[in-house]
Nucleic acid binder design. Structure first.
Length: 736
DNA sequence: TTAGGGTTAG
């Protein structure tokens, strides 16, 4: 924005003719140069105003400089380094200027500097006043330093400033936010200065340590509750997961004739979103419409979030598209909504649109978009995001983002890159270790996963239930039965973690694969909870491997009860019959399936080429390069045959009808994706594919040979794990 | 003479 320079006459006030002491305040306050400040939207325009101030001689007045510093230090369009520069140009800054610098720094990401300025202020002989301490105490709160906070409290008492309501509340807030509720309470109780604000500061302290009931008691004591105190309680209930209480409070608030504001509605809607309750959300929506608030962008954003989290993506998208002005939150909630509902392609598409609209993504964007990349196997896009994050310093200490990158790389098949990100992290959270361990596990790198687990415990991290899912799945993917047993009992005995369904699933898988059916069944019987479909499914899979037809039948019965609509159970059972040569039973199951009108979930494989994800279904013929793909498939089949490959037809039901009609196994989705990879990438390039189902035995054998014949590394992710095909063999050692 | 405390997307 260029400033209208002609509108400011240098001679408006001939201030340069005045003596150095400040002229009358009224004259200064209305000076055009200073009123221009409020129009500034960038550092360039601030500099222009600064030069106006110099031209008009205003820079001789501390008042003008203080207004300039205030704008630079506090306004969202300001520039803290410029404020510092201005500050250092002043010989003897007055109390207001010191306070303003402390205020600006307390808002920044470096509150330590605010403390430094506070100390310097005292050293320079300027006494802090009742304005200074709210800023200083905010810095203490931000630094989470109880020691410094207590020292400042001492100085407040010495100066007798504890009788100021603002200082008083700031003290309560400082103690409340640094988990010293006892001290917060003491300050609160000892002083007669109690208003809705100080009550609310105390309430949020109790909420932050999860004491909702204490918060409620204090709330009931407030003589006059204002909108913020209601908002705080509603936010507390949302945070505590007490969504119905949050809504009840919202209704009570309206009955008490307190007018909800934007915060109230954003908070209530986020509660509806988190609880997934569309009914609640609709009720709030109608209130919003009745009160004409449907045009507030923050409220619309919250509505988009609510609808998409409650599963109504159409309504969410309508609101999103209907927005005239979208801010970054609008984009983030819509992308996050798609990810939440597993519409990963839509999430990626919207992200591309966001970039095209020149909206800067934020860390929240990446936390939504990286899982979408992970799910689709969109490695190139993931890499692009990694490069973007690398370039933007503000993400350098965001552990969640780096953890998401580890997860993305691992799930996109690039375990080396995941490892590199993990190694480069200076600070890690438990989730970072978990992501790396699970990543190694799904790549079948059990030894490395277990090594990492012991490194993690040596470094003092306490593993949680998710860690053990990773550890046990590492054992299960590598068939490490004894180690699996050891970790399972260590989890219970050494870490007091009670096993959940996922842990049992790994153990049943391990035992089943080893053919230890009695032990597996005993384990299932001793579970504290009812086994789910995954547990029985795992056992049924083992029955197929070990050709245990009768046991398979009885296991399938459990599954038919639990998941009557899951065609996978019928498919697996029919494969068990096929393996035993019981073709009549195979036919019976097929008829049963057809009669029930159930369709197997179609096999779907995807491959990313040049940042575009291509998806293939069984015998798909819709791809633009369909002809070339099928030509390549023919060539592959010919070469496979030459190499002595004999298709195994025992798993013909894997893809049911479609496959049956084709009469061959050569058109499974993974083979189409591989053929497309072969024709669309340079020789020698690694081919990465993602399949939604478990890879079938036939394709597994074929892919091993393809990797040898075409001299390509093929990395395939199926529903359970990764397979690295190279030189005719697979990293899973045919065990999956 | 200018300002300051408690609530708000994942």
């Amino acid at each position: 924005m260029a400033l209208p320079s002609t509108s400011v006459s240098v001679s408006t006030f001939p201030l340069h003719l005045l003596p150095a002491s400040d002229p009358p305040y009224k004259l200064l306050q209305s000076h055009p140069s200073l009123s221009l400040l409020s129009k500034c939207k960038s550092i360039q325009t601030i500099k222009q105003v600064h030069s106006h101030i110099i031209k008009t001689g205003l820079h001789h007045t501390q008042f003008a400089l203080s207004k300039l510093i205030e704008f630079c230090a506090v306004s969202p369009f300001g520039d803290l380094p410029y404020a510092l520069l201005l500050f250092h140009s002043i010989d003897e800054p007055n109390q207001f200027i010191w306070n303003t610098m402390i205020r600006g720094l307390s808002l920044s990401s470096t509150p330590e500097l605010a403390m430094e300025f506070y100390v310097k202020m005292i050293w320079s002989g300027i006494l802090p006043n009742s304005y200074t301490f709210p800023f200083v105490l905010k810095s203490c709160t931000k630094m989470d330093s109880t020691q410094v906070g207590e020292q400042v409290h001492g100085q407040v008492l010495k100066l007798g400033l504890d009788s100021d309501a603002f200082v008083h509340t700031s003290l309560i807030n400082m103690y409340a936010q640094t988990s010293q509720l006892g001290n917060a309470r003491l300050v609160f109780d000892k002083s007669p200065l109690r208003d809705a604000v100080s009550y609310t500061a105390l309430i949020t302290g109790y909420i932050s340590i999860g004491y909702m009931e204490s918060a409620r008691e204090i709330f009931d004591e407030i003589p006059v509750r204002d909108v913020v105190s209601w908002n705080a309680m509603i936010a507390g209930y949302v945070q505590a997961g007490q969504y119905e209480d949050a809504l009840a409070f919202f209704k009570e608030m309206i009955e008490a004739n307190v007018v909800p504001n934007e915060s109230t509605l954003v908070t209530v809607l986020s509660g509806c979103a988190q609880s997934g309750s569309l009914e609640m959300g609709k009720w709030v929506r109608s209130w919003i419409d009745d009160h004409g608030l449907g045009f507030n962008i923050h409220i619309v954003n919250a509505l988009i979030d609510m609808y998409s989290k409650c599963g109504d993506l159409d309504r969410a998208s309508d609101l999103f598209e209907g927005l005239e002005q979208r801010d970054v939150i609008s984009w983030n909630v819509m992308i996050g909504g798609y990810t939440h509902m597993s519409c990963h392609k839509e999430a990626l598409g919207l992200f591309q649109r966001m970039l095209q609209s020149n909206i800067e993504p934020t860390d929240v964007t990446f936390l939504s978009i990286l899982p979408a990349c992970a799910s689709l196997g969109a490695l190139d896009l993931g890499k692009w995001i990694h490069a973007y994050i690398d370039k933007n310093i503000q993400y350098s200490d965001n552990i969640s983002i780096w953890t998401s990158l580890i997860d993305m790389y691992a799930k996109c098949g690039s375990i080396e890159a995941a490892q590199q990100v993990f190694n480069s992290m200076k600070h890690r959270s438990l989730a970072s270790w978990n992501a790396m361990i699970s990543g190694l596990a799904m790549h079948g790198l059990a030894e490395k996963a277990l090594e990492l687990f012991s490194r993690m415990t040596n470094e003092g991290y306490k593993p949680d239930n998710i860690t053990f899912v990773g550890v046990l799945s590492a054992c299960s993917h590598a068939g490490l039965l004894d180690l699996g047993r050891q970790y399972f009992s260590s989890m219970v005995q050494d870490y007091a973690i009670s096993p959940d369904l996922q842990h049992y699933g790994c153990m049943v898988n391990l035992l089943g694969r080893a053919g230890l059916f009695d032990e597996a069944e005993a384990l299932i019987q001793n579970m504290e909870m009812k086994p789910d479909g995954a547990i029985w499914g795992s056992l049924l899979g083992a029955c197929r491997v070990h050709k245990r037809v009768e046991l398979g039948e009885s296991v399938a019965k459990h599954l038919f009860e639990l998941e009557p609509e899951n065609p996978g159970v019928y498919v697996l059972l029919s494969n068990i019959y096929a393996g035993a040569g019981r073709w009549d039973d195979v036919a019976r199951i097929r008829t049963l399936l057809n009669n029930k009108g159930m369709k197997k979930v179609p096999g779907c494989s995807s491959i990313e080429v040049d940042r575009v994800v291509h998806e293939f279904l069984v015998s798909d013929k819709v791809h633009p390069r369909c002809k070339e793909i099928y030509d390549m498939l023919n060539e592959v089949d010919t070469l496979l045959e030459k190499a002595g490959f004999v298709p195994d037809t025992s798993e013909v039901l894997q893809d049911m009808d479609e496959e049956w009609k084709e009469g061959a196994l050569s058109h499974h989705s993974e083979k189409l994706a591989i053929a497309f990879g072969l024709i669309s990438t340079k020789p020698g390039t690694t081919i990465r594919i993602v399949k939604n189902l478990r890879v079938c035995g036939n394709c597994h054998s074929a892919t091993k040979l393809i990797s040898k014949i075409f001299n390509r590394e093929i990395i395939a992710r199926d529903r359970n794990r990764f397979h690295h095909f190279k030189d005719g063999s697979c990293s899973c050692n045919d065990f999956w």
